[in-house]
């Protein structure tokens, strides 16, 4: 990075450190922080969407849809997330390729499963094997997002399902009395009001989601814990210009600080959001706000 970094062996401590912390490898660590944050930013709304879908399905009046919604929430919630991450990405990837294969190569005669191999036609490959590396990476990133969203969507679904039932009945009855249709009642009364009941659970889920990011490396995304372990491990002078002993302790201490700060910021933000959502609601919190203002 800096011009004086060409021969690290002769540098003073401070300069050595500044060179060390700006190697290409450390840049990968810094990039991974951004990747993790972006992934969280995309996963959270996606998981919420999955959860919303799951909750609506679980409330459905059509039995098969209801069973689907309920079993999605129950099964995914019952399994440790790590189990999903260990085999789900490959399964998802194969499922996509299989579907594309069926559509794109209808006259392909060879079997898709040849022994252990999973072989689809070239055109069905996801991404195409001729596409540049960044396409592969982006694809991997989105498969990771999807896996996270499916897993955490089940938890969100459970929370939203509860929140929908927590909206006071009189609110819905009043809506009916005013002649609103079922659909109107759902979108105009139930959905706007359920958030205040869902928020404590969703805040907790967000915290859990943050802390699930160390498992990202299982999904093929090199996250901060992966790099901290890789960078902190003992390095011998044969393979690096910056040999050092077992420094994992320091890297993990850095991780700890990162996660604590991130959690704290989230807490403050969510607390504000709760204040905002409580306004004008028919709950004790809302009542307290009203009284304080009066």
């Amino acid at each position: 990075m800096f011009s004086f970094c060409t021969d690290p062996d002769v540098l003073g401590q401070f300069q050595w450190l500044s060179c060390y912390l700006t190697t290409g490898k450390h840049m990968s660590l810094y990039v991974s922080v951004v990747v993790v944050l972006v992934l969280l930013a995309i996963t959270a709304p996606t998981a919420l969407l999955f959860g919303f879908g799951g909750a609506v399905a679980a409330r459905s009046r059509i039995p098969p849809v209801r069973w689907f919604g309920k079993s999605y929430i129950a099964i995914v919630r019952g399994v440790p997330d790590i189990a999903f991450f260990l085999f789900f990405v490959i399964a998802l990837d194969q499922a996509f390729e299989w579907m594309r294969h069926k559509v794109l190569c209808p006259d392909w005669t060879d079997p898709i499963r040849q022994g252990n191999d999973f072989v689809v036609c070239q055109a069905a490959k996801l991404p195409l094997s001729s596409s540049p590396q960044w396409v592969h990476e982006t694809y991997g990133f989105f498969v990771a997002v999807l896996t996270f969203a499916i897993v955490f969507g089940a938890f969100a679904g459970n929370i939203l399902f509860g929140a929908m039932r927590a909206v006071p009945r009189p609110q819905l009855e009043t809506a009916e009395a005013y002649g609103l249709s079922r659909r109107q009642t759902f979108w105009r009364i139930l959905v706007p009001q359920m958030w205040v009941f869902a928020l404590p659970g969703l805040s907790n889920l967000w915290m859990v989601l943050i802390k699930a990011t160390p498992l990202l490396f299982l999904l093929g995304v090199e996250d901060i814990v992966y790099w901290a372990r890789e960078l902190g491990g003992t390095k011998t002078s044969r393979f690096t210009d910056y040999p050092h002993g077992d420094w994992r302790m320091y890297y993990f201490a850095g991780l700890l600080v990162f996660y604590l700060i991130f959690t704290r910021i989230s807490e403050i933000f969510l607390e504000r959001l709760m204040q905002r959502l409580t306004r004008g609601q028919a709950t004790t919190g809302g009542e307290a706000q009203r009284k304080a203002a009066a």
């Binding site: 190697t23 290409g24 490898k25 840049m27 990968s28 011998t236 393979f239 690096t240 210009d241």
Partner: peptide, 17 residues
């Protein structure tokens, strides 16, 4: 990318070895 000298990530973040 984690098994020197066979393969490892070098200082510049590339596969080496």
């Amino acid at each position: 990318g984690a098994y020197p000298p066979y393969n490892f990530i070098d200082d510049s973040g590339e596969v080496a070895g």
